[in-house]
Design a protein around this nucleic acid. Structure first.
Lengths: 362, 362
DNA sequence: TTTAGCACTCAGAACGGTCAAGTGCTAATC
DNA sequence: GATTAGCACTTGACCGTTCTGAGTGCTAAA
């Protein structure tokens, strides 16, 4: 699909014209005509010449004509070429930068909270729908167990999973005395740390029951709870913000398209799969234009996102979804700045309460 | 507004006609004419007679005419009368009931998770946009603190707040030895349990610092973290599911209305305030039609919801939002069944891991 | 009190004509 | 050979008109 990299059939004037067309179409949303382009100071030739060039650009597949007597609009290949070759860097304004810094300043504790702030900010700064992804994880395990008794028959199981704390309630018919809780915590820490759900086998369970002696009735329900937690945890997560912003763009005035899009936002699994897959490799801003997106629904939309890393490992991604006719410069710059801020906030050495936590067992 | 309760100016035939009009309009979404109503076996008179009755109903404020030569549609008062007096009870089908039961069967641990399941189900069963509310709480306090050390400078603060566990990371420049953690936990439990954010005063802070001796540097950041948690916690929460379903109804074909509606879904504070306020009182299904909703945006929408209680206390609400022209019978029945299921799941005595937890301190 | 009949109203579809934007092509020009 | 001016052609958007059908309100008869 990405045929355009270094296409040397394009002379400078063609590039200029293509860029002008994409810019204009992004700005107005309407097909761009040859006459309009003559207003552009940089293109010093008549409308007729431009028409000839446009005809060639169309033949090459970079432009399209909605109907005979309309102007041209960029094709997907045109957008792709634009993004890869023609775009000039947009530098965030001082205002925008300081808003990004605000993410840092808030000193929130959890990865979750930071991502939430970031995605809200992304929606506001770009004025498109923003999304954040927590990718599906493969090897999830608990690195530390703790038990907190609440009353004679109730306790809370506290699990440390990759720097995130999860809790689960345990209720029992029979009393759970303090020493049972201690024993249980000991057994969990001794036998289940570092194991994924699949690796928890019957023999392990039986050995734990032996370790607990008269309190062996606790093992089965508790281990079940652990497995549930691990499974939920590796499920991945997808959040949206600013869905209503889509409506501001005439590109989504078609009710059917809009409905499909909104349905996509709710049926998160599909998108999650795509993103989890794509997010792994690259650590640059990624741009998927139109049909490049595997999801059919997104034919006329572009997805731009970038992974967020913590200690060099990807822990999620932040992105923006919008019409193919999107302000790429701004969006790319914004996403870049934002993920940088978030990554800083997550990895910063002296930043209290970052959610960054070592994995070892004390 | 609710002028209609027991309006005895309406003879039986008028009621029959009003009901038929509302039913038909709910089904088709179009104005209902006199001729169409003659098809209804229960109304045994000619179209002319019906026209006369309709004219009177319009004069009384129960019907409206979009334009001279169109049929009639119910006014808000008409819908109100219909909901209050004319509606007949819809009983959920066996299928629907068994789907509701599935909520129970899943035995999820957290209030949050149950509510999430419920709201998804509400959207699916009614085919409208569903919402769940966790109302703004007033007196939030921590009933129990625990500290879990992770390494020499990092620990997790675990707080039990009204049966829900919240965690917060603590990082420090200086090492936090085990005995400091114990001391800190002791001080927190001794001085901060039961206090709201406002009630934590300087003298309390100072006394805690005295209790901690050489580790007094921990007090200020930790207490700050506690306050933050409490504040976030009492913020209330609002979730939506099935936003795309709105688009299925021609009532939302107007882009501007739709955009406003979606904006409302994102600017949650407004709605949250309304719901938190309204949810307090009644424990029946509540129906707000059109302008009865304080929020202007919802002029042509109806909001139906019911509180969910846990041990008799309201802990949230589940509801549905949709066009005024909504299938009230089904929706009301579904919400009723659903909240009952959730309330059962939350309050059930032997149901392991319900999130229901006593508040005392062991 | 009910009903048949009829004139009237009005939104929406269908039609046709005009307009402006923009193209492709050709012939003239640099 | 590249560029440009000029012109015929295409086409969607816009606008006013007409037509149609649904539905009403009113009147007079049953």
């Amino acid at each position: 699909m990405r045929l355009s990299r270094g296409d040397n059939r394009l002379n400078e004037r063609k590039k200029l014209i293509l860029k002008a067309i994409v810019d204009a179409h992004i700005a107005n949303g309407e097909p761009v005509g040859s006459k309009y382009l003559t207003l552009n100071k940089q293109i010093a030739c008549s409308s007729a010449t431009i028409r000839n060039e446009m005809a060639e650009l169309e033949e090459m597949g970079y432009l399209e004509q909605p109907h005979t007597s309309a102007g041209r609009i960029p094709s997907e290949a045109g957008y792709r070429f634009y993004v890869d070759q023609l775009i000039d860097r947009y530098n965030l304004t001082q205002n925008e930068i300081s808003e990004l810094k605000a993410v840092l300043r808030q000193r929130q504790n959890e990865l979750d909270a930071i991502m939430q702030t970031a995605v809200t900010l992304a929606a506001r700064l770009t004025n498109y729908t923003a999304l954040s992804v927590k990718p599906r994880q493969t090897r999830i395990s608990v690195s530390r167990f703790e038990i907190m008794r609440l009353d004679s028959t109730t306790a809370v199981l506290i699990m440390l999973i990759g720097g995130i704390v999860k809790t689960k309630y345990i209720r029992s018919d029979r009393p759970i005395p303090q020493d049972a809780a201690m024993l249980l915590a000991g057994a969990l820490n001794a036998r289940l740390t570092g194991l994924t759900a699949d690796e928890i086998t019957m023999p392990i369970l039986m050995e734990m029951e032996r370790m607990l002696g008269e309190y062996d009735f606790l093992v089965s329900p508790v281990v079940k709870a652990v497995c549930e937690t691990i499974s939920v945890f590796d499920g991945g997560e997808l959040r949206f913000e600013g869905i209503n912003r889509l409506l501001a763009y005439p590109d989504y005035y078609d009710m059917d398209r809009l409905r499909e899009m909104l349905a996509l936002f709710e049926k998160k699994e599909t998108l999650l799969e795509v993103l989890s897959e794509e997010a792994k490799g690259d650590d640059r801003v990624q741009v998927f234009i139109g049909r490049e997106n595997v999801v059919k629904v997104m034919d006329n939309s572009t997805l731009i996102f970038k992974t967020v890393t913590q200690n060099g490992k990807p822990v999620g991604a932040i992105g923006v979804i919008g019409p193919t006719r999107m302000d790429y410069r701004r969006v790319i710059a914004t996403i870049e700045g934002l993920t940088k801020s978030v990554t800083d906030a997550l990895g910063g050495p002296k930043d209290e309460g970052t959610g960054r936590l070592p994995d070892h067992k004390d």
